[in-house]
Structures are given as C-alpha cells and as structure tokens.
Amino acid sequence: HDVTIHAGDKTIHVHGASEEFLRIIEQAKRDGIHEEELLRLIEELVK
C-alpha cells in the first residue's frame, strides 16, 4: 500500500505500508492521538 498521511503541516508518504501499519494509524486517529505523537509513531514504524 502507498499511504499519504497528513499530520498538521506535514505530509508523510509511506510506500509499501503493511496492513498492520494501516490499522495502527487508523486506530491512532480514532483514539484522537495528537498529530505530533502520530508523527513519532509513524517514524518508529517506518525505520
């Protein structure tokens, strides 16, 4: 999957995102996670 995530003034493109990655991001959004926290989460996941 190619994913584009908008968080605040940043746009992150993730190529080859796994289903698990997508679920984590969707869950985080539903939980109302702060955008900066979401960015950190994404950066950890894509290392």
Score class of each variant (00 low, 15 high):
His1Val: 15
His1Arg: 12
His1Leu: 14
His1Thr: 14
Asp2Ile: 14
Asp2Met: 13
Asp2Gln: 10
Asp2Cys: 15
Asp2Asn: 13
Asp2Arg: 10
Asp2Ala: 12
Val3Met: 10
Val3Ile: 15
Val3His: 06
Val3Pro: 03
Val3Gln: 05
Val3Ala: 07
Val3Trp: 00
Thr4Leu: 02
Thr4Gly: 03
Thr4Lys: 09
Thr4Tyr: 01
Thr4His: 11
Thr4Glu: 13
Ile5Trp: 00
Ile5Phe: 00
Ile5Gln: 04
Ile5Lys: 02
His6Thr: 14
His6Glu: 12
His6Pro: 08
His6Met: 05
His6Asn: 14
Ala7Gln: 08
Ala7Trp: 14
Ala7Thr: 13
Ala7Asn: 10
Ala7Met: 15
Ala7Tyr: 14
Ala7Ser: 08
Ala7His: 11
Gly8Cys: 04
Gly8Arg: 01
Gly8Leu: 01
Asp9Ala: 11
Asp9His: 09
Asp9Pro: 09
Asp9Cys: 04
Asp9Val: 05
Asp9Tyr: 00
Asp9Ser: 15
Lys10Glu: 08
Lys10Gln: 10
Lys10Cys: 04
Thr11Glu: 12
Thr11Phe: 03
Thr11Lys: 10
Thr11Met: 10
Thr11Cys: 02
Thr11Asn: 09
Thr11Tyr: 02
Thr11Ala: 10
Thr11His: 15
Thr11Val: 13
Ile12His: 04
Ile12Trp: 01
Ile12Arg: 01
Ile12Gln: 02
Ile12Glu: 02
Ile12Asn: 03
Ile12Met: 06
Ile12Ala: 04
Ile12Pro: 03
His13Ala: 05
His13Val: 14
His13Phe: 02
His13Asp: 06
His13Lys: 09
His13Trp: 00
His13Met: 06
His13Asn: 11
Val14Pro: 02
Val14Phe: 08
Val14Ser: 02
Val14Met: 09
Val14Arg: 01
Val14Ala: 03
His15Lys: 12
His15Met: 06
His15Ala: 10
His15Asn: 10
His15Trp: 00
His15Leu: 07
His15Gln: 11
Gly16Glu: 07
Gly16Met: 05
Gly16Trp: 03
Gly16Pro: 03
Gly16Thr: 06
Gly16Tyr: 02
Gly16Asp: 11
Gly16Cys: 02
Ala17Trp: 10
Ala17Asp: 03
Ala17Cys: 00
Ala17Thr: 06
Ala17Gly: 06
Ala17Pro: 08
Ser18Asp: 13
Ser18Cys: 02
Ser18Val: 04
Ser18Gln: 07
Ser18Arg: 03
Glu19Val: 04
Glu19Trp: 01
Glu19Tyr: 01
Glu19Met: 03
Glu19Thr: 03
Glu19Ile: 04
Glu19Asn: 08
Glu19His: 11
Glu19Asp: 15
Glu19Gly: 05
Glu20Lys: 01
Glu20Cys: 01
Glu20Ala: 03
Glu20Gln: 05
Phe21Asp: 11
Phe21Cys: 06
Phe21Gln: 12
Leu22Ser: 03
Leu22Met: 12
Leu22Gly: 04
Leu22Cys: 05
Leu22Val: 14
Leu22Ile: 14
Arg23Lys: 14
Arg23Cys: 06
Arg23Val: 11
Ile24Arg: 08
Ile24Asp: 04
Ile24Lys: 09
Ile24Ala: 14
Ile24Glu: 07
Ile24Phe: 10
Ile25Met: 09
Ile25Trp: 02
Ile25Phe: 06
Ile25Asp: 00
Ile25Glu: 00
Ile25Pro: 00
Ile25Tyr: 05
Ile25Ser: 00
Glu26Val: 06
Glu26His: 07
Glu26Phe: 01
Glu26Pro: 00
Glu26Asp: 11
Gln27His: 08
Gln27Gly: 05
Gln27Asn: 11
Gln27Pro: 00
Gln27Leu: 10
Ala28Gly: 05
Ala28Lys: 05
Ala28Glu: 01
Ala28Cys: 07
Ala28Met: 13
Ala28Pro: 00
Ala28Ile: 08
Ala28Phe: 05
Ala28Thr: 03
Lys29Met: 14
Lys29Pro: 01
Lys29Arg: 14
Lys29Ile: 13
Lys29His: 11
Lys29Gln: 15
Lys29Trp: 10
Lys29Ser: 12
Lys29Val: 14
Arg30Pro: 01
Arg30His: 14
Arg30Glu: 13
Arg30Ala: 15
Arg30Leu: 13
Asp31Met: 11
Asp31Tyr: 01
Asp31Ile: 09
Asp31Arg: 09
Asp31Val: 08
Gly32Phe: 05
Gly32Asn: 11
Gly32Gln: 07
Gly32Leu: 07
Gly32Tyr: 05
Ile33Cys: 05
Ile33Ser: 06
Ile33His: 06
Ile33Gly: 03
Ile33Pro: 02
Ile33Arg: 07
Ile33Leu: 15
Ile33Val: 14
His34Ile: 13
His34Leu: 15
His34Met: 15
His34Arg: 12
His34Pro: 14
His34Phe: 12
His34Glu: 14
Glu35Phe: 15
Glu35Met: 15
Glu35Pro: 15
Glu36Phe: 05
Glu36Pro: 03
Glu36Arg: 04
Glu36Ser: 10
Glu36Gly: 09
Glu37His: 08
Glu37Cys: 06
Glu37Met: 07
Glu37Ser: 06
Glu37Gln: 09
Glu37Asn: 09
Glu37Arg: 04
Leu38Asp: 00
Leu38Pro: 00
Leu38Arg: 01
Leu39Phe: 09
Leu39Val: 13
Leu39Ala: 11
Leu39Gly: 06
Leu39Met: 12
Leu39Asp: 04
Leu39Tyr: 06
Leu39Ser: 07
Leu39Asn: 06
Leu39Trp: 09
Arg40Thr: 11
Arg40Trp: 08
Arg40Pro: 02
Arg40Glu: 11
Arg40His: 12
Arg40Leu: 14
Arg40Gln: 12
Leu41Glu: 01
Leu41Ile: 08
Leu41Asn: 01
Leu41Trp: 07
Leu41Thr: 03
Leu41Val: 07
Leu41Cys: 02
Ile42Asp: 00
Ile42Pro: 00
Ile42Cys: 02
Ile42Gly: 00
Ile42Trp: 14
Ile42Met: 09
Glu43Leu: 14
Glu43Phe: 04
Glu43Met: 13
Glu43Asp: 12
Glu43Arg: 08
Glu43Cys: 09
Glu43Ile: 13
Glu43Tyr: 04
Glu43Thr: 11
Glu43Gly: 10
Glu44Met: 13
Glu44Arg: 11
Glu44Gln: 14
Glu44His: 13
Glu44Ser: 15
Glu44Cys: 03
Leu45Lys: 02
Leu45Glu: 04
Leu45Trp: 14
Leu45Cys: 04
Leu45Gln: 05
Val46Thr: 12
Val46Ser: 14
Val46Gln: 10
Val46Gly: 09
Val46Met: 15
Val46Ala: 13
Val46Asn: 08
Val46Asp: 04
Val46Arg: 08
Lys47Glu: 08
Lys47Met: 10
Lys47Gln: 12
Lys47Trp: 01
